[in-house]
Write a protein that binds this DNA or RNA. Structure first.
Lengths: 177, 177
DNA sequence: GTGCTCGTTGACTGATCGTTCAATCGCTCA
DNA sequence: TGAGCGATTGAACGATCAGTCAACGAGCAC
């Protein structure tokens, strides 16, 4: 619902109707419409973050870790387009979900640490500010997701694979020593 | 107003009050609240696009052109933070302003052409999909702007300069032959 | 002064929509 | 069977707010 019509375009009645219940029931499970969105996001994003953490903890070189993170993020488009849509359109830049923005920031921290790890190991250039680089890296990926969400980039299976390769190649070369 | 409170958070009365007129007067100049946002965006974005076009038309190598575009975009944060805020939060991913999204796409086209130009001249690698690369490039820059908008990246004069250097360095190395 | 135009006002309307709540349902267990 | 209780319903409420409009006024031409 939120993915298709956006937060403000989704009426509580519609959400409940879509779920096959009366709209009043929704208030037994959620304190407000806002909390519905918040819950959807937290549950799904938490799952993604968990997978990022696994990649970070794995025993492999930093470039492969970055590659792993990029793959997880980009493949989410095909696995769960509604989640990506809500994330891109409703959560990532919202002011009402400021609290949740912090959970998004957690992903940046992971990327930042991986980059620093790569710099320490000599795989990545040291002159680059790791924090800024993590934002740039993540932004490039998110913009590709946005292109798919807005229907402005082709999003077939093959194209997703190519986007993966391109993003990873550009990012790793951009950072490499 | 839109920058501070968002589109839905800005009431027509507030907008008019802020402008020092009665809210009824607003409807002499604009057909709707929607058109106010649309007008603000079109006027300001058009100015930016114009400067991108100038860079594209200049007689200099593609890498310098990309650098020029990055500088224009990132420096807009200090020149006109309200514009950047509205762009990042209200326009870039909105569905109500689908028509305007096309004007944003114009910026991508310019970047894409510059990248293709660089590939033809041998400055950039040819294996890279120029269209995807333009989205990745632009996304990296926009995410840095977003970091400033959300107050999550330091945005002093010095930091803006460093972001400029970092983004340009990563992007050009990522694309270079 | 008279009449015209056009900018300006703000009370009012009409509709939307999130939220509440009293009533009802249906399951469980004694 | 029936008491208890959480799940479920949907009519009603209250507040918000974009958009309308009849009235007013300032400037100008003659």
């Amino acid at each position: 619902m939120f993915a298709e019509h956006g937060y403000h375009g989704s009426r509580v009645g519609d959400i409940a109707h879509d779920a096959g219940v009366a709209h009043g029931l929704l208030y037994h499970y959620f304190a407000s419409k806002d909390e519905v969105l918040r819950t959807i996001f937290v549950e799904n994003w938490g799952e993604l973050i968990g997978r990022f953490r696994e990649v970070e903890a794995a025993h492999e070189p930093a470039p492969e870790k970055l590659e792993g993170i990029a793959k997880i993020l980009l493949r989410t488009w095909r696995n769960d387009p509604a989640l990506v849509t809500v994330m891109v359109r409703e959560v990532a830049r919202s002011q009402q979900l400021q609290g949740q923005v912090e959970e998004v920031r957690e992903a940046f921290s992971i990327v930042q640490r991986v980059i620093e790890e790569g710099q320490a190991a000599g795989a990545f250039r040291s002159g680059v500010d790791a924090r800024l680089a993590s934002w740039i890296f993540y932004g490039g990926l998110e913009e590709v997701l946005t292109g798919w969400v807005l229907g402005q980039l082709p999003d077939g299976e093959e194209e997703v694979a190519r986007a993966e390769r391109t993003a990873i190649e550009v990012a790793l070369r951009g950072l490499s020593a």
